[in-house]
């Protein structure tokens, strides 16, 4: 940065005519060029990621409007959604009493459930997965059972949990837990099984105890696998919450949709779908981001 100035000075004093043309003409654009070109680069890269989806979205909305714009169509068109439910889009957190409140509140209620159920699944899944991955016999005994249980659809757990727990809120949390634990558990087990023998040898020579081995070797070495499981898990738990709430009742974004359906507010359902999609996307990216930070270096060797 200071280099052009330093080299410019002796040139201008010793050879003024010479410096006037190439040196004076050159350093200015050279010194100035990086800043705008970097900015332009930034703008270009942002545009490259933002523009295509924006254009696609606008095109889809237009097609949708054309297809369902008629006054008798069963599905609300984008313009009708805007005119009927713009309050829900613009003000996520309004509160006009227990029966009329913003989608943000409903989503928060659902997210709270997901947070509880998913956290339990994460802790237990990683712990049990580490044990299953570590021990051949635990793996042989438990893996077939896990493989069967993980294919059970989330809602199939609901009748049993409603009957056993007798509470819609707890049942919904249980459904989230039982849905998201399998990918976390199975991925952790695979990750632990794949810890290179070299690291185990190092741990053995150092005489790390099982607690130290878990924190210093297992966790970092299996982190990429664990976070793959966590990412699948958060997706599944968000997938199941809406269905669980609709069936089990109570509160949350699923109930919001169900109430909107019962009172024929189709536009509100459309908005709720967009909310669910965006929140799910954000959750997925959040776990992915944390995973990238935590497992940085673990893959590279």
């Amino acid at each position: 940065m200071s280099m052009p100035a330093a080299s410019f000075e002796p040139q201008s004093t010793s050879a003024p005519e010479n410096a006037a043309q190439p040196a004076a003409a050159l350093p200015l654009p050279v010194a100035d060029a990086p800043a705008p070109s970097k900015l332009a680069e930034r703008v270009r890269s942002v545009a490259a990621t933002v523009l295509p989806p924006t254009i696609t979205l606008v095109a889809i909305l237009m097609l949708w409007q054309l297809a369902y714009g008629g006054p008798t169509s069963g599905v609300p068109s984008p313009l009708r959604v805007w005119s009927e439910a713009s309050e829900f889009i613009l003000k996520p957190f309004f509160w006009n009493g227990d029966q009329d409140f913003g989608l943000g509140w409903a989503a928060l209620t659902s997210l709270k459930r997901v947070a509880v159920g998913y956290s339990m699944a994460a802790v237990l899944g990683i712990l049990v997965g580490s044990i299953v991955g570590q021990s051949v016999w635990a793996s042989r005994g438990l893996d077939p059972i896990f493989q069967v249980l993980r294919t059970v659809p989330p809602l199939a757990w609901l009748p049993l949990s409603l009957a056993a727990l007798r509470d819609s809120d707890t049942s919904a949390i249980f459904v989230i837990f039982i849905t998201s634990i399998w990918p976390i558990l199975i991925n952790t087990a695979v990750g632990v099984r794949n810890i290179p023998q070299d690291y185990r040898n190092v741990a053995q020579v150092l005489r790390l105890n099982s607690f130290e081995f878990f924190w210093k070797i297992t966790m970092p070495a299996a982190a990429p696998y664990i976070f793959t499981g966590l990412r699948i898990g958060i997706g599944l738990s968000w997938l199941s919450i809406v269905a669980a709430e609709i069936v089990a009742g109570g509160s949350g974004i699923g109930i919001f949709m169900w109430n909107a359906y019962n009172s024929s507010h189709l536009s509100e359902i459309v908005v709720a779908i967009a909310y669910i999609g965006l929140i799910g996307f954000a959750l997925d990216r959040m776990i992915g981001f944390v995973g990238d930070i935590v497992s940085r270096g673990a893959a590279a060797n």
Partner: peptide
């Protein structure tokens, strides 16, 4: 008959922990 730090090993493939 068990590994221990009084018989430290330099492994062929260095075996450093890549996250440290």
């Amino acid at each position: 008959n068990a590994p221990g730090p009084e018989r430290a090993v330099v492994f062929q493939n260095h075996s450093l922990l890549p996250w440290l």
